[in-house]
Write a protein that binds this DNA or RNA. Structure first.
Lengths: 159, 159
DNA sequence: AAAGATTGAGAGGTCAATCTTA
DNA sequence: TAAGATTGACCTCTCAATCTTT
């Protein structure tokens, strides 16, 4: 169960990380659902577009922003979001292989409504229980973890 | 984009949290897959059983341990893990409505093999980049967040 | 009637193969 | 031939309905 490479103190923190993420993200999803709004997956797409130059991105660019989703999955996701009228696809003139995904007015409005709910939850589960110095230390730790997770998985590292 | 309720410093930390979790969990999944081992979902089940009194739990008890999965989803998941020979189901004598899920020897062995790989990744992305005091502060923050996320979503809070 | 668990139908995801344009 | 994006087949998860036992 234990292992010399992962001392108990770090292991406890790791478990709390996994469980904490689950609890917190489930809570946000629940709040959105109860408000009759789409899920966080949709939010990620709307957010990525909202902050882009012309509130538009090509599928590839969108894929870079929406983690935890394959390119294929993103195609299906955009299909649904487009069917809901929140984005529209446009052919890319400079490179006709590409497709632009453009945020519509409805999409902008939906993003705002979702942010209302999302922000309220972030306030409750994070801002209200963590002071500024703690938030900074938290961010700092997570940035190092992200960085350490970036490089390729080391196979036969000992060889 | 910004909101008075969520100051920029906290919002940055929140984004790093979401992205960091994704990166880190993807890396662990990748390491398991490349070692030809099952996913973290299976690990959670094996781990919960491994640490239980008789290395056995009823479906309900298992469901409490395996977050991020509905009761129904757990039934299907256990179907597959059982088909792989890592657990077996047994009727519960004291309450014949219930089902025991029992860890097999193969299951114990698989858990150990998976932990090898999992621990190596935890070491790389967490232990090696965070000191003990930081890990403790990290755990502390996440525990407060978990706690804040626990109570029911507040509807009509202002009413 | 309620609790423990499973099943059928459907939503959403992935991989490999495909289509189109560069 | 390679790159951008989509499609087909398949896998996994969820909700509502169901079956069995209390």
């Amino acid at each position: 169960m234990t292992d010399v490479r992962v001392p108990e103190a770090w292991l406890d923190a790791w478990r709390t990380f996994i469980v904490g993420y689950e609890r917190v993200s489930c809570r946000v999803e629940r709040a959105l659902a109860e408000a009759g709004l789409p899920s966080l997956t949709w939010y990620d797409v709307l957010w990525a577009l909202r902050r882009s130059p012309n509130q538009a991105l090509r599928m590839g660019g969108l894929s870079d922003n929406v983690l935890a989703m394959s390119r294929t999955g993103l195609t299906r996701l955009v299909d649904r979001i487009e069917a809901a009228g929140l984005v529209r696809r446009e052919v890319c003139d400079s490179d006709r292989r590409g497709t632009w995904v453009v945020l519509t007015d409805e999409g902008r409005h939906m993003h705002a409504r979702m942010w209302e709910v999302y922000a309220a939850e972030i306030e409750r589960v994070f801002v209200s229980v963590v002071d500024c110095a703690e938030a900074e230390a938290f961010r700092n730790v997570l940035e190092r973890m992200s960085e350490a997770a970036r490089d390729p998985v080391a196979r036969d590292a000992a060889a």
